[in-house]
Design a protein around this nucleic acid. Structure first.
Lengths: 345, 345
DNA sequence: TTGAAAGCGCTAACAT
DNA sequence: ATGTTAGCGCTTTCAA
């Protein structure tokens, strides 16, 4: 069906090897021959057979990406960015969405490993680093995105989540919030870092979380963030001293939080200021535009793609690189108190 | 490195072929042998080499998906749905995002064709069906998603865009809007269908678009929808008889439209009712919750995945199937006039 | 500068 | 029920 090296070789009275060398820009080929071959390749729209090539080189020119949820704008942005970046170098990207389900994630990782991807990128929903040990066994290099495991030495690209917590909380303090609550995420590195930053910022201002002012959305991850945020906020509003500021684990949660506040007949930000994390695409258009800590997902994508390409090219499995990017606070109406309108740059 | 059929064969004193047959559940293998082999495979965590298999079978167990923008929730939903569905059958999905750029889209299609995907799925940004002729030359089956070409007989899965236009416009008429404008999309099937439905619904009520009440967001596709919607709405507001209802090509455009209306000191929906299309994830949380025609992206994904799997399995290249799904109107505040509060089921 | 020989890991057709 | 032979399309030595 499709043209093969052999076809071209026979037509031109050359050997298959010569054609193969031209294809790969091998230096010792005569100018004349090279041009003849190139011309014919173009005419036939020759496409090398990746399967045959992989079989012998052991490389697939393929990269795997597993994210918890492609619908989440943060992960969609990462997927898009990586896809664009690696394609330029001739790699294709397998993308799969694990639906925040650790078991499903393991299956997807297994499938991509079976396909012998050159590099694996995972924003994991796992609680334990076990499945990554398995990747290591297969000697396939991998990069963790966004979430990492303290006990696992691995390549990592993400934002400094402690700083996320500090930025958000400090901002609320500066807005004169006195009772700042935190709706925390599940037991993964991102949630733990943000919680730590939250506490740290409070401590730096001689404050501390009030009783019952740190509530969790449960083990659900980003999944169902809005409903979880709504429920968690209900608990906060019912507490002895309800908060006047809430730092939410992420933006979907913050949406739920804002809805709960408004449903309770309170105002955002006058009664309760809200800050999220993720800076999702439509923040500007919300009922109350949402202040949020931007995770710089474009930069995460670019950094991860660059590292992935490097890992794909090198045979050195020892290379481990961890990149912590700086998050940035984007202030919008949800946290801007009327009596304090100086908007930070 | 990884275990091969040959390794297992030698260990067990069998031939490679026998092992291969066990692997593929070939019937004529003795129970005892089969179990011995299966056991050893499990122990070694044997993974067949896809490259070797593809080389001989001509199938890659791989499907390609090209969308204009992974960040757009509509396409993200489609990508996610298809990914989940095909993985179950052992297929992996290459996903790439063309950024609404026809040239880039062609490159991505070419790259995936070179990889010999078994089926190709494309939500195209092309104005002409030319690049699909090329897919046909390669004898790789393909499915168009969302957007199709009148002159091209192909597999298609999407929503009936004429009905989208009818639903949205009829709803605005029922809300007693008298001057209903349409912000239309570029010259692709979706935009043309919606425009047609809009006109048709007006005609059915003895109405017609007023002078200057159909404006275009230009050739940009979904890209930059908000800004384009904002600009287009500016034109409408400046016209002789400004509209009291606007049907927008899609939700991002509708966001821009609503912002423009609010910025002009007018109210949504009291002064101008707005309906979009796509029913994006956060519609409920917007400044004014947005009425929108849902394209049933989950069903599109499922239908497309099923068809793709069927195409991958059959050798019959003649099979052509077109599925037009029914869109559904979701009414929210942006189009509910105060004097007419009966909310449809 | 070119080419001949060997083989990557697997499957398909045909023995036995 | 199991094995033999051949070869998918390409790259990698190594020889000419």
């Amino acid at each position: 069906m499709a043209a093969r090296l052999k076809d071209i070789a026979e037509e031109l009275g050359l050997s298959v090897v010569t054609i193969s060398k031209v294809l790969r820009n091998h230096p010792d080929i005569g100018e004349a021959t090279r041009n003849r071959v190139l011309k014919r390749m173009k005419e036939l729209n020759y496409q090398p057979n990746f399967a045959a090539r992989s079989l012998i080189t052991g490389r697939t020119w393929t990269i795997g990406l597993v994210v918890p949820d492609l619908l989440h704008p943060f992960f969609a942005q990462i997927a898009k960015g990586i896809s664009v970046e690696v394609r330029r170098k001739g790699y294709s990207l397998f993308i799969s969405s694990s639906d925040e389900d650790p078991a499903l994630e393991q299956e997807e990782i297994a499938q991509l490993l079976a396909r012998r991807v050159d590099v694996m990128l995972v924003a994991s929903s796992q609680m334990t680093p076990e499945s990554f040990r398995r990747i290591e066994e297969q000697k396939i290099p991998y990069i963790l995105l966004d979430r990492q495991f303290p006990a696992l030495a691995s390549n990592f690209v993400g934002v400094d989540d402690r700083v996320v917590g500090v930025l958000a909380t400090t901002h609320l303090i500066e807005q004169r919030c006195k009772r700042i609550a935190h709706i925390r995420g599940p037991e993964v590195s991102t949630a733990m870092g943000r919680l730590e930053g939250y506490k740290q910022a409070l401590a730096a201002h001689q404050m501390a979380p009030l009783q019952g002012h740190v509530v969790s959305i449960g083990p659900s991850g980003d999944h169902m963030g809005e409903e979880a945020g709504y429920a968690a906020t209900g608990k906060l509003l019912a507490s002895k001293s309800p908060p006047d500021g809430i730092f939410c684990f992420n933006d979907p949660v913050a949406l739920g939080t804002m809805r709960a506040i408004l449903d309770a007949g309170l105002r955002v930000p006058e009664d309760i200021a809200v800050v999220g994390c993720g800076n999702l695409s439509y923040s500007d258009f919300l009922r109350v535009p949402l202040s949020s800590v931007d995770q710089n997902s474009k930069m995460i994508a670019k950094t991860a793609a660059t590292l992935a390409l490097k890992l794909a090219q090198t045979k050195d499995r020892g290379l481990l690189k961890s990149t912590l990017l700086a998050p940035q606070l984007v202030v919008r109406a949800s946290s801007l108190r009327a009596n304090n309108m100086r908007k930070p740059a």
